[in-house]
Deep mutational scan, measured.
Amino acid sequence: MDSLVVLVLCLSCLLLLSLWRQSSGRGKLPPGPTPLPVIGNILQIGIKDISKSLTNLSKVYGPVFTLYFGLKPIVVLHGYEAVKEALIDLGEEFSGRGIFPLAERANRGFGIVFSNGKKWKEIRRFSLMTLRNFGMGKRSIEDRVQEEARCLVEELRKTKASPCDPTFILGCAPCNVICSIIFHKRFDYKDQQFLNLMEKLNENIKILSSPWIQICNNFSPIIDYFPGTHNKLLKNVAFMKSYILEKVKEHQESMDMNNPQDFIDCFLMKMEKEKHNQPSEFTIESLENTAVDLFGAGTETTSTTLRYALLLLLKHPEVTAKVQEEIERVIGRNRSPCMQDRSHMPYTDAVVHEVQRYIDLLPTSLPHAVTCDIKFRNYLIPKGTTILISLTSVLHDNKEFPNPEMFDPHHFLDEGGNFKKSKYFMPFSAGKRICVGEALAGMELFLFLTSILQNFNLKSLVDPKNLDTTPVVNGFASVPPFYQLCFIPV
């Protein structure tokens, strides 16, 4: 009986604490739906499609509103004006990374994606500088992407125009580009180590996009005490870190300090320079996690976009025909596509942009946080508050993009057929937390897609009208449904 009384008292205290925290903070924060004790607004949000729920709530509470995930307040920004004001106009104040408990377990605050403060700034600055020195957006990395595009075309030829699921092959190409940047090595598509790495990356994007992960991140005790797919994700990350550590040891034994070959060499050189400046942010643990982040951000996002792009091109054969006509006119058949071609191919450029806009790969991006107490639109948001960005509300804005739910390359073309930029184009987020590999991803999408369409016609196994382009999961990332196609050599 005594234990029951204690339990009831504990629960009562928890409920009172929950109510007090919510009521004391709500006077400062933007308005929002009334949260339930302990669980907050979790029942009012469709976990399978958070973005749709945010759109519905914005119609009631406006472009800036507050939700509670458990006891934790989260300020939501919906629509271009609110997102721009926060991420661009007040970029420094909104540059923090929001709480992501599962990532905390995986990387302990290291790396480039989930770190904060001085650690994040130094690692991000170093990573950007190193990638630029190796030619991100310049010639040397373009050579690597072109080489991988040629290998991709050869792998597709091996399908002999038979029906195939493109998931694996389209994942190999961007993964190999990242391998060449980090390890100075590309792998054969049949290499077992490479296959294991690909498998872990593919599993992780599916797990991260599941409703279960949303629950884990908002009720963090689940991570330590409950079984579930989150444990598989943590094991996959541990596998990748151990693999990278092996490569780091190989580099330490063979590195030429006067001739760095890749990202690992550059990081080890930085560690050597910083060894007298303790404590340094440049450690082996930081290198492991930064490399894992580059793999995660640079492989599955690009391969998922490529997979979605081919599905949309199957669905819209008239678009595919126009792209192939432009390829034939500008590039021809006797040389590989290059980035200089893009400025002469406005329709193809528009298609690449429209694919990214339409699929809305990361509907709410990753959570941000404010780095200080900030007054925002007459609300006071306390330091450390998590900020949720609705990228969907920007990419699918119906004023900027008429009929935003329709796939239409003319969203990025003017009346004369010239490519038209849009400030609403934010597939990689915006501001200080914009994806480090934005330029690389854009290069890969253009070169891989043009190389495929230069060499193959795409054949659907069903009537294009019957192809479903609805994402199968739409949590962290929008993942396309399973499909097969035939690559018919031109």
Score class of each variant (00 low, 15 high):
Asn474Ile: 05
Asn56Arg: 14
Ser53Asp: 10
Tyr358His: 07
Arg125Tyr: 05
His368Leu: 06
Phe482Met: 12
Tyr379Thr: 06
Leu36Trp: 14
Arg307Lys: 05
Ser162Arg: 15
Glu93Ile: 07
Gly475Thr: 09
Ala350Cys: 02
Ala309Glu: 00
Thr229Lys: 15
Asp256Arg: 09
Arg377Ser: 07
Leu311Asp: 00
Gln146Tyr: 07
Glu325Leu: 15
Pro489Met: 00
Leu201Asn: 04
Asp349Tyr: 15
Gln214Pro: 08
Thr302Phe: 02
Leu11Ala: 10
Pro402Ile: 12
Phe456Gly: 01
Leu90Pro: 06
His78Pro: 01
Pro427Trp: 02
Gln193Ile: 08
Cys175Met: 10
Asn133Ala: 09
Lys232Leu: 06
Phe69Pro: 08
Ile452Tyr: 01
Arg26Val: 12
Glu142Met: 04
Ser393Thr: 05
Arg26Phe: 10
Leu485Trp: 01
Cys435Val: 00
Cys216Tyr: 15
Leu388Val: 11
Glu142Gly: 03
Asp262Arg: 04
Arg26Asp: 11
Leu36Arg: 07
Thr364Phe: 15
Leu11His: 08
Glu81Val: 07
Leu71Thr: 11
Lys459Ile: 06
Ser336His: 11
Tyr225Gln: 07
Leu131Trp: 05
Gln324Leu: 03
Ile169Pro: 02
Tyr379Lys: 05
Lys84Glu: 07
Arg307Asp: 01
Arg97Lys: 04
Gly384His: 06
Pro221Gln: 12
Met136Ile: 12
Asp191Ile: 01
Gln484Asn: 06
Lys270Trp: 06
Arg186Tyr: 00
Trp212Phe: 10
Asn398Val: 11
Gly137Trp: 06
Ile50Ala: 12
Lys206Gly: 08
Phe239Gly: 09
Glu285Thr: 08
Gln146Ala: 09
Leu268Gly: 03
Lys185Asn: 08
Leu413His: 02
Thr159Val: 03
Gly442Asp: 15
Ile359Ser: 12
Thr392Ala: 13
Lys232His: 06
Glu318Gly: 13
Thr159Trp: 05
Gly109Asn: 10
Asn107Pro: 09
Cys435Leu: 00
Asn455Lys: 08
Asp414Ile: 04
Val479Tyr: 11
Gly475Gln: 05
Lys190Asn: 14
Lys84Arg: 13
Arg132Gly: 06
Phe183Thr: 04
Ile207Cys: 00
Ile387His: 01
Tyr483Asp: 01
Lys48Ser: 12
Gly384Leu: 02
Arg21His: 14
Lys459Tyr: 08
His344Asn: 13
Tyr308Met: 08
Val370Asp: 01
His411Lys: 05
Asn196Val: 09
Ile99Phe: 15
Val6Gly: 13
Leu128Arg: 12
Leu131Val: 08
Ile244Leu: 09
Arg21Thr: 13
Thr364Met: 15
Gln22Asp: 10
Leu413Gln: 03
Tyr483Phe: 12
Ala149Ile: 01
Tyr358Ser: 04
Asp262Val: 01
Val319Ile: 12
Asn378Thr: 07
Lys200Thr: 06
Glu272Pro: 07
Pro30Gly: 02
His230Cys: 12
Ser422Cys: 10
Ile50Tyr: 12
Val370Thr: 14
Asn378Tyr: 02
Val8Arg: 07
Ile389His: 03
Leu440Ala: 02
Leu458Arg: 00
Val248Leu: 05
Arg342Pro: 03
Pro404Leu: 04
Thr371Tyr: 05
Asn259Lys: 10
Ile169Thr: 03
Asn41Phe: 03
Asp165His: 01
Ser127Asp: 06
Ser343Asn: 13
Lys200Met: 08
Tyr225Arg: 08
Asp224Thr: 13
Glu93Phe: 05
Lys190Gly: 11
Phe456Leu: 01
Glu288Asn: 06
Ile45Ala: 06
Leu485Tyr: 00
Ser478Ala: 10
Val370Arg: 00
Ile207Arg: 05
Ile327Ser: 02
Ser303Gly: 08
Thr283Leu: 07
Glu246Ser: 10
Asp224Val: 06
Thr302Ala: 09
Gln252Pro: 04
Leu233Ser: 03
Trp20Ala: 09
Pro337Ile: 09
Ile123Arg: 08
Ser18Thr: 14
Cys175Val: 10
Ser3Phe: 14
Ile47Leu: 14
Lys375Asn: 09
Asn133Phe: 05
Asp414Val: 03
Thr469Met: 11
Pro260Glu: 08
Thr301Glu: 00
Ser393Pro: 04
Val319Ala: 08
Leu314Pro: 01
Phe239Arg: 08
Thr385Pro: 01
Pro402Asp: 14
Leu294His: 02
Glu415Gly: 10
Asp373Leu: 01
Ser162Trp: 05
Tyr61Glu: 03
Asp89Arg: 05
Pro363Thr: 02
Phe419Ser: 06
Lys273Asp: 12
Met339Trp: 08
Arg186Glu: 01
Ile327Cys: 06
Ala86Met: 07
Ser51Glu: 09
Ser365Asn: 14
Ser58Val: 08
His78Asn: 13
Gly437Ile: 02
Val83Ala: 11
Ile205Gly: 03
Gln192Ile: 09
Asp397Thr: 07
Phe100Lys: 08
Lys423Ala: 10
Thr304Ala: 07
Ser24Pro: 13
Glu325Arg: 13
Met136Val: 12
Ile387Phe: 08
Leu447Gly: 02
Phe476Val: 15
Val330Asp: 03
Glu400Thr: 09
Asn474Phe: 05
Cys13Glu: 10
Gly96Asp: 14
Lys232Asn: 06
Phe263Met: 10
Phe65Gly: 01
Gly296Val: 12
Leu14Gly: 15
Gly32Arg: 01
Ser23Phe: 15
Ser390Gly: 07
Gly442Tyr: 13
Leu361Gly: 03
Leu197Arg: 01
Leu11Gln: 08
Asp224His: 12
Ser390Pro: 05
Asn231Gly: 09
Cys10Ile: 11
Ser280Tyr: 07
Leu311Val: 04
Pro317Cys: 05
Pro404Thr: 07
Leu461Asp: 10
Ser303Ile: 02
Gly137Ala: 09
Asp165Trp: 01
Gly431Arg: 02
Asp165Ser: 01
Pro337Lys: 00
Phe487Thr: 00
Ser303Pro: 02
His344Arg: 14
Thr159Pro: 01
Leu440His: 01
Asp463Trp: 02
Phe219Cys: 09
Phe110His: 11
Pro409Lys: 01
Ile284Gln: 07
Glu104Ala: 13
Glu354Met: 00
Tyr483Lys: 00
Gly298Thr: 00
Phe126Trp: 12
Ala439Tyr: 12
Ser23Lys: 14
Leu453Met: 07
Leu36Ile: 13
Leu311Asn: 02
Ile389Gln: 04
Phe69Asp: 04
Ser429Arg: 01
Thr302Gly: 06
Thr392His: 14
Arg329Tyr: 11
Lys465Val: 13
Pro367Lys: 06
Cys216Ser: 15
Lys59Thr: 12
Ile205Tyr: 04
Leu380Tyr: 12
Val5Cys: 15
Lys270Ala: 12
Ser336Pro: 12
Glu288Gly: 13
Leu268Ala: 04
Ile264Cys: 05
Ala291Lys: 01
Cys216Pro: 09
Leu447Gln: 04
Leu131Thr: 07
Cys151His: 15
Leu453Gln: 00
Pro63Thr: 09
Gln324Ala: 06
Lys72Ile: 03
Glu199Asn: 13
Leu391Lys: 05
Val177Thr: 04
Ile434Cys: 11
Arg342Phe: 05
Ile488Pro: 02
Tyr80Arg: 13
Asn277Phe: 08
Ala149Cys: 09
Leu156Gly: 00
Gln324Asn: 07
Asp262Lys: 02
Gly475Asn: 05
Lys270Cys: 09
Pro409Cys: 02
Arg335Leu: 04
Asp256Leu: 06
Val479Gly: 13
Lys28Ser: 13
Tyr61Pro: 01
Phe446Arg: 01
Cys151Arg: 06
Val479Met: 14
Val351Ala: 07
Cys10Asp: 04
Pro63Gly: 11
Ser209Gly: 09
Pro337Cys: 08
Phe401Ser: 03
Asn107Glu: 09
Lys423Gly: 09
Lys432Phe: 05
Ile178Val: 09
Gly137Lys: 09
Gly137Asn: 15
Lys72Ser: 08
Pro317Ile: 03
Gly27Ser: 15
Phe126Asn: 06
Gln214Glu: 10
Ile42Ser: 09
Leu311Phe: 05
Leu54Trp: 05
Phe401Val: 04
Phe428Ser: 04
Leu380Gln: 09
Thr305Val: 06
His316Met: 05
Thr55Ala: 14
Lys232Ser: 06
Pro363Asp: 01
Pro409Arg: 00
Leu131Phe: 11
Val436Phe: 14
Ala173Thr: 01
Tyr189Ser: 01
Thr385Phe: 04
Arg150Asn: 10
Pro489Thr: 02
Thr304Gly: 04
Thr364Asp: 05
Ser365Trp: 00
Met129Lys: 14
